[in-house]
Computed example of a mutant assay.
Amino acid sequence: MRARIVARSLEAGFHAAAIAPAPESGSEGERLLRERFLAFIAQGRGAEMHYLQRADEQGNMLRTSIHTAFPWARSVVLCAFNYNAAASRSIDPAGKSEGWIARYAWSGDGEKATDYHNVLLAKLRAVEQTIQDAAPGVQTRSYVDTGPLVERHFAQLAGLGWIGKNTCVMSQELGSWLLLGVIVTSLEVQSGAVLGPAADRCGSCTRCIDACPTDALIAPRQMDAGRCIAYLTIEKKGSIPEEMRAPMGRQIFGCDICQDVCPWNRKSPVGGDEGMHARDELINPSLHWIAEMGNAEFRAHFRGSPLERTGRKRLHRNTAIAMGNSGDVTFLPKLKEWAAGDDVVLAETATWAIAEIQRKSSEGLLC
């Protein structure tokens, strides 16, 4: 059964697959996961992502135990998709007028933007159907980043990889450019079907922690999401705290820095497939181009992509910060237009950016 599931996963377009047992209710493994997750929430590291705290009628947070949401769960199928592209990195030299969009959001199918949630869920459904055909009556649930469980925890249990110091799942063969799909099942795990947890191969390296501009990686494998650039540019609503703006650099949607500096990604193979090809215009995109987008152009370029959920207003807020950090005086006309506009958040952010450019100009920091 394991061989059939793995083979179907690869056939469907995933690059690796494995199976993890669901920790027994009340086991030491379940207790440790619960304690770590509750500590993460109690310390406020989930920031404004309140969906992480979804609970059942008894008040038990769903993500503290797989049995809270799925009492029937006995195993989890993990399918990994490598989205690495043959393109420049966020840490490579770039022009002052260029921003950065996280690598996973470059995806498209020809001229059409795609969202990995939809592309991978279709692949996952094919694997789920194979399980149901092989074991009639089995209960299953498929998710791509939307289920009430901690996917990376099960990826480690399944042997797909270890959790790196940057909190990403790391594979010795594929690196960390991985998107995960999960199928929760009621199938009992048989002896020999599980590879076992992967060995930690980060060693003494701390490059990801040292490179994080906002100090979001507060310790190995511990993140304060409220300081993470990915959270700030994608999830955070309203104004971004002023002390976080300069460290954001040119990032306008997501952040790849902690993965770009990782030695395990130096030889990460190029992944992707139909529906998940990199769109050239999103690699080091022009901030001028992004800034001039109206609603119609934004929809034309980003409908059906991860950027659609963040929306044009927040993307422009992020772009204003990148403009201010660039010190490029050619951005001043657009920033002044935004500063005089009706969008309160964008106006405040643009005013900050104008002051940053003027400060750098007066201090002779412009090239």
Rank of each mutant, 00 (worst) to 15 (best):
residue 6 V to R: 09
residue 8 R to Y: 12
residue 10 L to K: 13
residue 10 L to I: 05
residue 11 E to S: 13
residue 11 E to G: 06
residue 15 H to E: 05
residue 15 H to N: 11
residue 15 H to D: 10
residue 17 A to E: 13
residue 21 P to S: 08
residue 24 E to W: 07
residue 35 E to G: 08
residue 37 F to N: 00
residue 38 L to F: 07
residue 42 A to T: 06
residue 45 R to K: 01
residue 45 R to G: 00
residue 48 E to W: 06
residue 50 H to P: 00
residue 50 H to A: 12
residue 54 R to E: 04
residue 62 L to D: 08
residue 62 L to G: 01
residue 78 L to Y: 11
residue 79 C to H: 01
residue 82 N to W: 00
residue 86 A to D: 14
residue 87 A to K: 11
residue 88 S to P: 09
residue 88 S to E: 13
residue 91 I to H: 06
residue 93 P to G: 08
residue 95 G to Q: 10
residue 98 E to T: 07
residue 106 W to R: 10
residue 106 W to M: 04
residue 107 S to D: 14
residue 108 G to Q: 09
residue 108 G to W: 14
residue 109 D to A: 15
residue 110 G to C: 12
residue 111 E to S: 07
residue 112 K to R: 15
residue 112 K to P: 05
residue 113 A to V: 09
residue 113 A to P: 03
residue 114 T to Y: 12
residue 114 T to N: 02
residue 116 Y to N: 13
residue 117 H to L: 11
residue 122 A to C: 00
residue 123 K to V: 06
residue 124 L to Q: 08
residue 124 L to S: 10
residue 127 V to N: 14
residue 137 G to M: 08
residue 153 H to E: 15
residue 156 Q to D: 09
residue 157 L to K: 14
residue 159 G to P: 09
residue 164 G to H: 13
residue 165 K to L: 05
residue 165 K to D: 15
residue 168 C to I: 10
residue 170 M to D: 00
residue 172 Q to I: 06
residue 176 S to A: 11
residue 177 W to Y: 14
residue 179 L to W: 11
residue 180 L to F: 05
residue 183 I to G: 08
residue 184 V to M: 03
residue 186 S to T: 09
residue 186 S to A: 07
residue 191 S to F: 05
residue 192 G to C: 01
residue 192 G to A: 03
residue 194 V to S: 05
residue 195 L to Q: 12
residue 198 A to Y: 00
residue 202 C to A: 11
residue 203 G to I: 06
residue 204 S to N: 01
residue 209 I to L: 14
residue 223 M to R: 11
residue 226 G to N: 00
residue 228 C to D: 02
residue 228 C to G: 04
residue 231 Y to F: 05
residue 232 L to C: 04
residue 234 I to V: 11
residue 238 G to T: 04
residue 239 S to Q: 04
residue 245 R to K: 12
residue 246 A to P: 01
residue 247 P to V: 04
residue 249 G to N: 08
residue 250 R to L: 04
residue 255 C to W: 05
residue 257 I to F: 04
residue 262 C to E: 04
residue 263 P to V: 02
residue 264 W to Y: 13
residue 267 K to M: 03
residue 268 S to V: 06
residue 269 P to F: 11
residue 276 M to D: 07
residue 277 H to I: 10
residue 281 E to Y: 14
residue 292 E to G: 12
residue 292 E to I: 08
residue 295 N to F: 01
residue 309 R to F: 13
residue 311 G to N: 08
residue 313 K to L: 12
residue 314 R to V: 02
residue 318 N to P: 13
residue 328 D to H: 13
residue 329 V to K: 15
residue 331 F to P: 14
residue 332 L to T: 14
residue 338 W to H: 04
residue 338 W to P: 03
residue 339 A to R: 02
residue 343 D to F: 09
residue 350 A to C: 00
residue 352 W to M: 01
residue 352 W to K: 03
residue 354 I to K: 03
residue 358 Q to W: 05
residue 362 S to C: 06
residue 362 S to T: 12
residue 364 G to P: 00
residue 366 L to G: 10
